[in-house]
Design a protein around this nucleic acid. Structure first.
Length: 1018
RNA sequence: GCCGAAGUGGCGGAAUGGCAGACGCGCCAGGUUCAGGACCUGGUGAGGGUUAACCUCGUGUGGGUUCAACUCCCACCUUCGGCACCA
């Protein structure tokens, strides 16, 4: 993989830490200086954490690694720019806390136990030891003195303490529920850990299955609204959006649909006379939109309902209630059993079984044909008394809303498809916002020259045809007036026994003896009765919409989901779309048939895992007392070290008598421990608190009233000022840890509500093949060989240089040589003594100009580098540093060499590079300023970040761009503060510009920012 | 299907209304070298041109705004990420 190094000279000796001998060869040998400085920094206590109330603190945190055994290139990509930014903050005068630890619980350790017979603890600790070494090779300023490992009993004692606190505060509960289960990992998963359309396990890609289990949940949904607020957070828009979508807040209404027993109402879905099918009253569609009075018929008091059962639905569109022509329950809905009639039971049971057997994948396949069965029961639409059939269908999810919907096929795409397939009535109740209507008039159904008459009346039409059915006048209309005029014209031409439709605005079927509006299920039935009588062909259609659907030209006007003026909705007809939803909701509440409601997509966090290698849930089940929490003073509930990990992949704790059997803390009787352990996201929800004082109160008895860290240290360091990590945790770790902190705030443990104030998401480094790196794909890039060959500084700088940090992308080693060469040049420009022959002969004025130019370059670069590191733009930071270095290489041959300006330039170059390439910067800094023995006070990493001089950073001269009509024609050197008049004069003096202006009239001259002049000529 | 991000030389990328391609890789030529590597110098978007000056075109596609558009607006295409029958 790594080519043999031509850079590494052979036979370089050991270095010594003694006296003046800390500086070795005059060549840049990263393999020598990097371990040397890592050792000297560690030994001298340069990175020892100190609480210093005199200095402003800065808690800089990067997501903790899982100890898989090997650091990969992704860790370097995520961590070394973080380190650079942390180092920069430190040079800016902050007391920076940059801790590290390990997310050490989790399934791979058990896999190793089964495969290699190693105990998970041993495997984990061995990996951690190896990874510590790899992490050290980064040369990062880790606060190793605050390391925390989540599988340490001193750590998970507190994880369990948090569980008990959440339980006490009613935020942890146990529930029997169908949950996602990974058959490969042998454990349940939280919803967030199930990915993709095929619903696979986030860790091992195995499709999950459903299992009914008794499981522990955290009530994250209690904080749903608060989690949607990001007011105090400087977080990327992308993450905020992902969390917002994940929480999925929808506002709407809950509406109660009483069940109808059918005694006094006959027929399917047809209205009670006088209700629903009433003609539009002119008064109600006028400018006034009063809330309909309470005299409006309320069906559950007006209609005989012998059964008090009712179905509650959640809808985001209460304004479409009048168009609800059927209901759909999820097959798992508890009322299905009770409501299904005897005649329908066999079909319903078969459907339920079939839905149950289907995998989640099949059931949620996006383009799946709608299926469902009628259960034989009816409900009453509470707003108009319509009797509507109840179906079950798997497109309704039992987990969302109330598990039941009112189906409004005219304004919901799924309901539309379902109604069309099963011949259920589709009644539009929201006007088309575009006022568009279409009418197909079959050739031969009208007398006289209908086309000419239409044209004369101002209607646009064309001939369209359907094979086997002939051609038709395709008339397009806009607005009520056109529709009214058109209906009149149409009726005058229609032959007896024929009809034509108006679809879209003004829905109706016009018969030769008059129109019938499609404004109710009764009207739908009446229309179809006439049509069925008219043509055999039409008998295949059960509903008017079904008949219209057969004309393809109609299809895009038949259904819409937009808000708009309500129609066919009794007294609400005419209610404008922008207020309809709120008004109907208010009215429903007044009538006592509904209420404003919010529904969330977010589910409670399932934390039970049927695994050995996790923090045991500190709960005890007593036959006498029930569920009893383990007493605080007994924490930690230890994982038994002698547990045998079964080869079946089952939880070892279930088979460990010593762990399982316990005395009930309440009654002292025989009881059993909970054997499930906690989701590892529980451990990582509070690790940033653990770092403050790792393993606080280790070995002491815990109580509910303490703080899990030393309070004074917590007050000083918390919360996290800057967090960096991958965006893949948006809806998992980042949501959980916010919930956790809010819960802690409400318990009085912390005084703030957000754990991390600023967040930056770096991109993900993919394998060279463009795929996510994974052992199974064999595309994992190990950093160690590259570090050995080029050095940590080169590796750090290269990863920062390849592109914007938040972009990520496939690993590509092409270009790493360039970064190494850059560091070589930095080394040489500082270390190599210039020969005497260069730079001689410069005159005084020339030297002065060169000095000014050098200082300008120095301060300009410093400004750019400072701005870039603040914004994590490491790629352009390094490009600017390279330019600066290239400049210095040339300047070295001039008279500025050895002047104070030259020394300033070299020092600034090193200070600018200190965060990114800490070793070479320190080596060269010490060579320039060190005192032989390393004194941490002289370290470049504790030097103040330099300040640029704005006067020097400002350019003295600019290249004045001269354009003719926006095209660059000439460039002229000019002073930076050139006035417009001077610039014009200069430009007009240019022969090129003169040539371009010859014979043309200058209409306008634009002078921009003192650097561009544009002549607009005509 | 919905939401979001992105599309620029052979490659990674820079420029967020004002010189398109900074910086780096690669490539070409030259220097150095016994030679190769390394290193140093110069060149390197496409087309035209007396291979000179210079001109034309060029940032996914098509329109638009502007003196001026990679940048802003509209429509579309492609890729990636997230969600996905969420009522």
């Amino acid at each position: 993989m790594v080519p043999r190094s031509p850079l590494r000279p052979c036979g370089e000796g050991d270095f010594s830490f003694m006296g003046d001998e800390i500086f070795m060869a005059d060549k840049y040998i990263s393999q020598d200086i990097e371990p040397k400085w890592q050792k000297l920094w560690a030994e001298s206590g340069l990175y020892t954490t100190r609480q210093d109330p005199e200095r402003p603190k800065f808690y800089f945190l990067t997501m903790l690694p899982y100890p898989s055994g090997d650091l990969h290139i992704g860790h370097w990509y995520a961590m070394t720019p973080s380190d650079a930014a942390a180092r920069y903050r430190r040079m800016k005068g902050y007391n920076v806390f940059f801790p590290i630890g390990f997310d050490a619980f989790g399934l791979p350790a058990e896999g190793a136990a089964i495969k290699h017979g190693i105990h998970p603890y041993t495997w984990t600790m061995t990996n951690i030891e190896r990874m510590r070494g790899q992490l050290r090779s980064m040369g990062a300023m880790w606060a190793w003195d605050h390391e925390a490992i989540t599988c340490d009993p001193r750590y998970y004692a507190w994880t369990q303490w948090f569980f008990l606190k959440l339980y006490e505060h009613g935020l942890a509960y146990r529930k029997f529920a169908p949950v996602d289960f990974c058959p490969s990992c042998n454990t349940t998963l939280a919803r967030e850990q199930v990915w993709g359309a095929d619903r696979h396990c986030e860790r091992c890609d195995t499709p999950v299955i459903k299992k009914e289990l008794e499981q522990w949940f955290f009530k994250i949904t209690d904080y749903a609204d608060e989690l949607l607020r990001f007011d105090d957070l400087d977080w990327p828009e992308r993450i905020r959006t992902m969390q917002t979508n994940w929480i999925g807040r929808s506002e709407g209404a809950e509406v109660v649909f009483p069940i109808d027993t059918g005694d006094s109402v006959s027929g399917i879905g047809y209205s009670v006379p006088g209700i629903g099918a009433q003609p539009k009253s002119p008064e109600s569609s006028n400018t006034q939109y009063p809330i309909p009075n309470t005299q409006h018929p309320i069906p559950n008091t007006q209609y005989p309902i012998s059964n008090t059962a009712a179905i509650t639905v959640f809808t985001t569109r209460p304004d479409t209630l009048w168009g609800a022509t059927f209901m759909v329950l999820a097959p798992e809905h508890p009322l299905v059993e009770q409501l299904t009639t005897e005649q329908n039971r066999a079909a319903v049971d078969a459907y339920k079984l079939q839905a149950d057997r289907q995998t989640e994948i099949e059931r949620t396949a996006a383009d799946k044909e709608k299926t469902g069965v009628f259960i034989g029961a009816y409900a009453i639409n509470p707003v108009n008394g319509q009797r509507i059939p109840i179906w079950i269908a798997d497109y309704v999810m039992v987990t969302y809303g109330t598990g039941a919907i009112m189906a409004v096929p005219a304004h919901d795409e799924r309901d539309f498809a379902f109604a069309l397939k099963f011949g259920l009535p589709i009644i539009p109740v929201i006007e088309r916002p575009d006022d568009l209507a279409r009418s197909a008039v079959w050739d031969g159904s009208v007398a006289g020259d209908f086309g000419a008459a239409s044209t004369a009346a101002g209607f646009t039409w064309e001939w369209l045809a359907i094979p086997d059915r002939g051609r038709f006048y395709a008339v397009t209309l806009h607005g009520d007036d056109q529709v009214t005029a058109y209906v009149e014209l149409l009726q005058a031409h229609l032959k007896a026994g024929h009809w034509a439709d108006v679809v879209g605005r003004g829905w109706q079927v016009v018969f030769h003896d008059g129109p019938l509006a499609l404004d109710s299920a009764a009207a739908d039935a009446a229309i179809m009765a006439r049509c069925h009588a008219g043509y055999d062909y039409v008998r295949q259609f059960a509903t008017t919409m079904g008949m219209w659907w057969a004309v393809e030209w109609y299809r895009d006007v038949l259904y819409h989901a937009e808000y708009g003026t309500m129609i066919h909705s009794d007294a609400f007809s005419g209610m404008p779309g922008d207020v309809a939803k709120a008004q109907v909701t208010r009215w429903l509440a007044e009538q006592g048939v509904g209420k404003f409601a919010i529904s969330y997509r977010l589910r409670d966090w399932l934390i039970s895992r049927q695994r050995y290698w996790g923090a045991p849930i500190p709960m005890i089940y007593c036959p006498a007392c029930g569920t009893v929490p383990a007493p605080y003073e007994d924490l930690p509930v230890l994982l038994p070290e002698d547990a045998e990990i079964p080869a079946t992949g089952e939880n070892a704790l279930k088979f460990h008598a010593g762990f399982l059997n316990v005395k009930c803390p309440q009654c002292g009787g025989d009881a059993q421990r909970e054997t499930d352990t906690m989701d590892t996201f529980m451990c990582s929800s509070w690790y940033h608190y653990a770092y403050v004082t790792p393993y606080w109160k280790a070995g002491q008895k815990l109580s509910p009233d303490e703080t899990p860290w030393e309070p004074e240290a917590g007050n000083y360091w918390l919360p996290v000022d800057q967090y960096t990590g991958g965006p893949e945790h948006a809806t998992m770790h980042l949501l959980y840890t916010r919930f956790f902190t809010k819960a802690l705030r409400d318990m009085g443990v912390v005084s703030f509500g957000e754990p991390m104030l600023r967040l930056f998401n770096q991109g993900i480094i993919l394998g060279p093949d463009g795929n996510r790196m994974s052992k199974s794909k064999g595309n994992v890039v190990a950093p160690d060989e590259w570090v050995e060959r080029y050095g940590a500084d080169t590796m750090r700088a290269y990863l920062m240089f390849i592109g914007p940090w938040d972009a990520g992308g496939p690993w590509n080693s092409q270009g790493i040589e360039g970064v190494r060469r850059f560091l070589e040049r930095v080394w040489n420009v500082v270390v190599e003594v210039r020969g005497q022959e260069s730079g001689v002969g410069s005159q005084g004025a020339e030297v002065e100009a060169q000095t000014r130019a050098l200082r300008h370059m120095t301060h300009k670069t410093l400004r750019k580098v400072t701005e870039d590191i603040e914004a994590f733009k490491f790629n352009t930071l390094l490009a600017a540093s390279m330019e600066f270095d290239n400049y210095l290489v040339k300047a070295k041959e001039t008279a500025v060499y050895g002047t104070p300006a030259w020394d300033e330039a070299l020092d600034m170059l090193l200070l600018m590079l200190a965060p990114e390439t800490p070793h070479i910067a320190e080596e060269l800094w010490q060579r320039r300023h060190g005192r032989g023995q390393f004194d941490p006070a002289t370290s470049i990493h504790v030097q103040p970040w330099p300040v640029w001089d704005p006067e020097l950073a400002k350019a003295e001269t600019v290249t004045l761009v001269v354009q003719i009509n926006g095209k660059v024609r000439d460039k002229i050197e000019a002073t930076a503060d050139i006035s417009e008049a001077e610039a014009r004069e200069l430009a007009l003096a240019s022969p090129i510009i003169q040539r371009w202006l010859e014979g043309k009239t200058v209409r306008k001259v634009i002078f921009a920012g003192g650097k561009l002049l544009n002549f607009v000529v005509g």
